[in-house]
Design a protein around this nucleic acid. Structure first.
Length: 476
RNA sequence: GCUCCCAUCGUCUAGAGGCCUAGGACACAGCCCUCUCAAGGCUGGUACGCGAGUUCGAAUCUCGCUGGGAGCGCCA
């Protein structure tokens, strides 16, 4: 099998707006986007909102926003239009009906009057008998009179596709290679629901064909569905896309990623403060391998992506690994980018200069924007609250240590190296024994950003009063 | 039940018969560096699910088994 793609490549992502975008679907979207970009082709966004009951416009909007946030863009879609508009399936019913008529003209469809209750019973009986639960073809060969009788009873029929007998369906899957299925294993399936709306197999397949999609990367839960869609497209004489079925994304326990694993939607990670490029770096390594282990910028994600490097085995999503890419991504931010990233967490009353020095001082101790909150009191609070660790450190250091520091402060000033040196001489302390009590007294933490840049920000008055407070504590 | 898919360190993966006493990254442990945390450097441990076969030689090919997963919906 060869996967020679070029600038004629057209990929798509076709979510249904029934909720927040699942991380697994975000990966599917990303890969289709990357494939299109890599070869200089087009990427289409199509909203599959045929399930009127569960689809909501607000979900569609949120979906588009989250996708753009992730860094994706599309040449065609509901918000940007395109040659194959409309891109919401709820607005394409005329098109589906038109093609359904063509199918009907070939004698490949028939109305089915079976009720859902009847179908459920049939399914259960087949399973009980050890048979694959397939539609038995009850309505396949109804005579005109029989149909008329059912219509007269007011039954609203679904339309089923007449699956040909004894047909072999083959296709070359981009990730799994040659696939072969037998049509006899497939029951006649519904292409139009009783309410007149188009069913997934039908609308999804003909939209891909009509929109000129050449490569479909999707979850391998669709692998055994693909023959149905191929039969439809072949019945129309439409050209079919290549398919690549990717293994699903799992939680750490190996079961499908769900709520009990923690955050599962792209939006949740966005809200928690993860950077889009961090998600890109994590997702591109799940079910797809990149040749080097270094952090990739968005251009590198495109060049590193390769459909032939898609894996076949399911991958577990590990948030710990995402956090690694988050740290890398934060480190890559420029000072300006970092500041505007954390700005929403900073108090409005801070001056621009304060924001600049503060964000620069704490950035190595920030993984998500909300992390700046814990360092705010360190610089700006009038009084510090001590944890038990801090208390212990201060008490162990003893009152004399702080007395000396208080005496040195006015003379030496806020130059940290000089202060540390003088303090070291005066107390004969060095290393952690010198710095830890100082840090504890001045910041109220046993760990945190470097003290050097912190001192000028805190200011000499606050530092003095904090040293006095520590001294008082140590003398107790 | 039937059809299909999958199987390498804890996790993500490299590996397309000899380059593999299986490589990297994350995580973990230890050491170094260091005012702490982080970063960085070094070191360490742990993996080819099992069994047959093909072959001079198998993580890689074949078959079986086991274990996971998906589909068989008027959900997509």
């Amino acid at each position: 099998m060869t996967h020679a793609f070029d600038a004629s490549i057209v990929t798509r992502f076709a979510p249904s707006p029934t909720g927040q975008l699942h991380l697994g679907n975000a990966r599917t979207a990303l890969f289709n986007f990357l494939a299109a970009r890599k070869y200089g082709g087009r990427f289409i966004l199509r909203v599959e909102d045929t399930d009127i009951a569960r689809s909501e416009e607000r979900h569609t909007q949120a979906l588009l926003q989250d996708l753009r946030w992730l860094g994706l863009s599309w040449e065609e879609g509901p918000d940007v239009g395109g040659a194959s508009a409309p891109y919401k399936q709820s607005e394409r019913n005329d098109i589906y009906n038109e093609w359904l008529t063509k199918l009907d003209a070939q004698g490949l469809t028939y109305p089915c009057y079976c009720s859902q209750a009847e179908l459920n019973i049939s399914r259960k009986m087949q399973i009980a008998a050890g048979q694959p639960p397939r539609y038995l073809g009850t309505c396949r060969n109804l005579a005109h009179a029989q149909r008329a009788e059912r219509e007269a009873r007011g039954l609203q029929p679904t339309i089923r596709f007449r699956v040909p007998a004894g047909k072999h369906i083959q296709f070359d899957d981009v990730v799994h290679g040659e696939q072969k299925f037998l049509s006899d294993d497939i029951g006649d399936f519904i292409v139009r629901r009783a309410d007149g709306s188009s069913a997934f197999f039908f609308s999804n397949a003909i939209d891909d064909a009509l929109m000129g999609v050449t490569l479909v990367l999707r979850g391998d839960d669709h692998l055994t569905n693909t023959p149905r869609q191929l039969m439809l497209m072949e019945a129309f004489g439409l050209s079919t896309p290549r398919y690549g079925h990717m293994a699903m994304m799992l939680g750490m326990d190996g079961s499908p990623l769900s709520k009990r694993h923690g955050s599962t939607s792209l939006h949740e990670f966005r809200e928690r403060g993860f950077l889009p490029i961090a998600l890109n770096n994590q997702l591109i390594r799940l079910g797809h391998s990149v040749m080097n282990d270094v952090w990739l910028d968005s251009a590198a994600c495109i060049s590193e992506f390769d459909p032939s490097r898609l894996g076949r085995a399911p991958a577990r999503f590990d948030e710990i690994q995402l956090r690694h890419w988050q740290k890398e991504s934060v480190a890559k931010l420029s000072a300006e980018e970092f500041l505007s990233w954390v700005q929403p967490e900073l108090p409005a009353e801070l001056t621009v200069a304060q924001c600049v020095t503060f964000s620069a001082g704490v950035r190595n101790n920030v993984e998500v924007p909300a992390d700046v909150r814990q360092w705010l009191p360190v610089v700006f609070a009038d009084q510090l609250e001590y944890s038990n660790d801090v208390r212990t450190v201060i008490q162990d250091a003893g009152k004399a240590f702080f007395t000396v520091a208080i005496e040195l402060l006015p003379r030496v000033g806020l130059e940290f190296k000089a202060l540390a040196k003088e303090l070291s001489i005066a107390t004969t302390r060095k290393g952690p024994a010198l710095f830890m009590p100082l840090r504890a007294a001045i910041t109220g933490h046993t760990h945190g950003p470097e003290l050097g840049p912190l001192l000028p920000m805190i200011g000499i008055d606050k530092i003095r009063s904090r040293l006095v407070a520590a001294s008082a504590l140590a003398s107790n």
